[in-house]
Nucleic acid binder design. Structure first.
Lengths: 346, 346
DNA sequence: CTGAAAGCGCTAACAC
DNA sequence: GTGTTAGCGCTTTCAG
């Protein structure tokens, strides 16, 4: 094979003239040592350029101190935030994190499951709705600590941290209503995860609840997976091509909103004067587009951080949790920026 | 400890009534087996829900089949692209990748070095300029396969894939010049990596070369680390507060450009009519801001993919490489979009 | 406080 | 084809 020869604890022990276990104790501070031995060992380590082998340690301890995160696409700022929450929580407890991103490619889901089931990680955060039922059951059999973030409980098996999508959409619609809008459209990426389904339904419910017109042409839901911004752009154009134009738009995510804004601006509409728009997520870019985007803020970072802290508890205590603890619903808030105003008379 | 009891190859062998090594051969396809034994083993694995322990395998083979990627900030789309290139190249060769992002926090750099030096990864892609000289030397001592991406060779020690920043900036300045601009500013994030230093110098050189006025007030370089877009926004405002306004701006990165655009638009300037702007990088968002951003495209994905392929060769062949192979310079191209036009008479 | 010894689960000769 | 065996580098009793 191709490996370099490596310096082991044994070498260090020999060099320092102590027993192997003493070196181990030194490294793990698992026993008090005399200052003299400490120095000898320190010197030996330095001299030999010894570096402990984590793999061996992991094998022995049957623990890797690593958790996995599973997301569809890391270039999506939403998931980048999720990742950060996980990474920060993990770091606090001295865990490493290994990221899996599928780019929405199905075969990659299997790779992830393989990783998880081969003792490479102590637990896993899933922010991805595995399409394949089969994969969920494999994860179930593996019986590995798992927490879902932004994914509703599957099989009532794993704890889950989600944002309350219904409240979010209600917030958006009510906000537009209060501004005077009566004709509101909804643009959505493919509802491949439950929150997206719920948002769509919540939109319809909210419109009905306010007794506003429910125009089928104004509920545009993309079917094909693609870049979120491109989807928004396409949906925006589609909306513009209809005979009746609404005065405001609610979207399933900020990326879709940003794409739609581009379509509107290109066509010469002014935002917010001719068209108000509200997003969902509050990714970092939403405050930097022009005009800045009013949106429903999902506390992604906090969600994934909290979920991860929970996961680490599961790992370290192997504790079972009460059913009522399984679903954590976080309330979203509306972040008011410059993409909405009262409708202009047309 | 907290681990679940685990089913091992030994259990499978017993259950199937064959020798342990036979199971190993089955798993690794390292020897041809009779159909009968294969079936027996398969059944036993299924029955016991056996899952191979990668940690043990790694220890034995002294190889983890994992590479590390080191970046400052994964929420920055530029680095998300870098990550994708690495992930795809790794996947092709059945390697896992583990991501380290520091969020520009110095103490996290040490975590990364620790990971690398503890045999957790077979090699590493670094797209980050470690500030601490000391860390570089630790990596050097560890003697682990390492390839730099978007970082110039350090100590002439590691191979490196970089974009030709000078050419990029020349392209930008020449393009603006050809449009008729004579008063051009340069906005830059902190030049914490060599390419940024080179871009700044290349800007000055280009201006001189074209015999244009070199106004100190028009070369705005931020000192403090911060979100790139916020930096751009702040620099944009600063530029606006000066007494003379240029007609065009070149920036060190798209994120800075996007921030600056926001500042310009807010102040009522029209882009490109009142101010032309060109970015550097071509991140995905640049085509979705309004107006879409003309920029110098860095083939980030290709760079990191290529770098990773190179790394994997180093790992698998432990080959040394000729000096002239160490630096791969990729030529950038100008992507023309809608943020530039001829200057308006003022 | 120090040292000897028994594995963690797997691979890879090497015999049979 | 199949089985035996010696470790990979480390942790962790348990004696001294």
């Amino acid at each position: 094979m191709s490996q370099r020869k490596s310096v082991t604890m044994k070498d260090v022990a020999r060099e320092a003239g102590v027993a192997l276990s003493t070196v181990s104790h030194f490294l793990n501070q698992s026993a008090p040592l005399s200052e003299e031995t400490r120095q000898k060992i320190k010197k030996a380590i330095e001299k030999l350029n010894y570096r402990p082998n984590l793999t061996a340690r992991n094998l022995k301890k049957r623990k890797t101190n690593t958790i996995g995160v599973f997301v569809p696409d890391i270039a999506n700022p939403f998931y980048a935030e999720i990742y950060k929450g996980v990474a920060d929580a993990a770091r606090e407890k001295k865990y490493n994190v290994i990221l899996y991103a599928t780019s929405y490619q199905k075969d990659r889901e299997y790779d992830f499951v393989r990783l998880v089931t081969q003792w490479q990680v102590d637990g896993v955060i899933v922010s991805y709705s595995l399409i394949d039922e089969n994969l969920w059951s494999k994860l179930e059999r593996a019986d590995i600590p798992l927490v879902l973030v932004d994914v509703y409980p599957v099989n009532n098996r794993w704890p889950s941290v989600v944002v309350d999508s219904e409240t979010g959409i209600q917030l958006a619609v009510q906000y537009l209503f209060n501004l005077g809008h009566r004709e509101i459209a909804y643009l959505s990426e493919p509802p491949y995860i439950l929150p997206l389904v719920k948002r769509q339904q919540a939109f319809i419910d909210s419109i009905k609840h306010l007794k506003l017109p429910l125009n089928k042409e104004w509920i545009l839901v993309e079917k094909k997976q693609a870049n979120r911004v491109e989807i928004g752009y396409a949906l925006g154009k589609k909306l513009l091509s209809g005979k009746n134009l609404p005065t405001a738009v609610v979207t399933s995510s900020d990326l879709v909103a940003i794409g739609a804004m581009k379509a509107f601006l290109e066509s010469g509409l002014k935002i917010p004067d001719d068209m108000s728009i509200v997003g969902f997520d509050d990714i970092i870019f939403s405050s930097y587009v022009h005009p800045s985007l009013t949106t429903i803020r999902q506390p992604k970072y906090e969600m994934s951080k909290k979920g991860t802290e929970f996961l680490l508890q599961l790992i370290e205590r192997r504790e079972s949790f009460a059913l009522q603890d399984k679903l954590h619903r976080i309330k979203p808030v509306l972040v008011e920026r410059l993409s909405c105003s009262a409708p202009r008379k047309r």
